[in-house]
Amino acid sequence: MKLNLKIWRQKDAKSNGQMVDYPISGIEGDMSFLEMMDVLNEELITKGEDPVVFDHDCREGICGSCSLQINGEPHGPDRLITTCQLHMRKFNDGDTIVIEPFRAKAFPVIKDLMVDRSSFDRIQQAGGYISVNTSGNTVDANAIPIDKHDADEAMDSATCIGCGACVAACKNASAMLFTSAKVSQYALLPQGQVEATDRVLNMVRQMDLEGFGNCTNTGACEVECPKGISLENIARMNREYFSASLKG
């Protein structure tokens, strides 16, 4: 199929960017979106032009590296998938596809479509961990009885791959869904209780410091999340936050 790509090109973090048109042909429906980008880049390299920079790594929907705002939606028009899992069969011959980086003040553009998502790392570092002894006498996690429902919910929260689609989709560029998933995966387990108070306070403080917007419960994050992280996590984080504030 033939497509008209409109891609955000930006030389570096300090330069101003612009949308540039790239007509492309010979795209098969079985190709992934990133394979289509590879075809474009091979053409650009052959012509001696600068290839389009974009994030990618595992290309099987696990790592959370790939991003891209495709036709106004993070990870494109399909649901519960990352950009690397999006297939070109979702588009029609002659379509125009607008490709932009995930936009947020806390996700500054590095080059073209690649953004700096280290703000997520700093939120995680602020409290998204548990302190356990790993020096040889570690207690087997299975030795601690955990309610099946809690274990399942914690696992659901832990499936967040930190891709940033929630921020990209939110009209407020809020990181509440990401932060709440990382808070929830520990809040639901006995191993997470020791640092529960500090965890939620520190992670929320870091989230606010990074300059993400406020949640207004539009639910866009939940719809666009490739892992289906639920809004229930945000409600849980809010409860945890107030409980932690009162305990302090």
Partner: peptide, 23 residues
């Protein structure tokens, strides 16, 4: 605050795909 959190706006933003007009 929320408007400031985005900085550069999207050229194409399909808000109706994932959230209601009301919200």
């Amino acid at each position: 605050q929320n408007r400031g959190a985005r900085g550069v706006k999207y050229a194409k933003y399909k808000g109706s795909a994932n959230a209601s007009w009301l919200s």
